[in-house]
């Protein structure tokens, strides 16, 4: 019985405590930089889109909200013909960002995505692509991975190192370097 009265008294005293609610639209909450918010597609420093349409993000996505179609330009460079993210399904798990080999797909700190029409939550490539590099300013996938052009495979051009052997556990370069 006494504990009941004590509980009532303790709750009553909460009247004089400060409130913990953040009054959101006026008062902005602190969003950490690694926040997993709206998904964007970034470009490399040269202004080309980073995405190589490898489908890894679409495969990694647990709710299947990413849809894309790969195509190639005249030089054999792959890019997505369309790239569609259905944000009404997206759970913002960030697996697509982890799966992406080219840092193309990235999650941002933006979370204010309310819409009155559900269809508007389906973002196409033009909605997703930003003009900058996102979280990785200097990174250019083809500078690191190399690019095979007509007559020359990866690593055969001047001043170009041979590509990394992905199937070996050993560190360092392939036999040409040893």
């Amino acid at each position: 019985m006494l504990s009941v009265l004590k509980a009532i008294w303790a709750v009553l005293l909460h009247m004089f405590r400060p409130r913990v609610t953040v009054q959101y639209p006026e008062e902005r909450p602190h969003i950490p930089p690694r926040w997993r918010g709206r998904i964007i597609l970034s470009r490399d420093p040269d202004g080309e889109e980073r995405c190589v349409a490898c489908y890894l993000c679409a495969v990694a996505c647990p709710v299947d909200c990413i849809a894309l179609q790969a195509t190639e330009d005249g030089h054999g460079r792959r890019y997505p013909e369309f790239f569609r993210i259905n944000f009404s399904r997206c759970i913002f798990c960030g697996f697509c960002e982890e799966a992406c080999p080219t840092y193309a797909i990235q999650l941002t700190t933006d979370f204010e995505m309310g819409e009155y029409v559900r269809q508007n939550l389906v973002y196409e490539k033009e909605h997703l692509l930003i003009s900058g590099t996102g979280k990785y300013p200097g990174y250019n996938f083809y500078r690191v991975a190399g690019l095979s052009v007509k007559g020359k495979d990866k690593g055969q051009a001047e001043n170009e190192e041979p590509p990394v052997d992905l199937k070996s556990l050993l560190p360092g370069r392939m036999e040409s370097e040893q």
């Binding site: 709750v11 009553l12 909460h14 913990v20 609610t21």
Partner: peptide, 8 residues
């Protein structure tokens, strides 16, 4: 209730 639970 909000007052006693530190809310608005």
């Amino acid at each position: 209730l909000a007052l006693w639970q530190d809310r608005y």
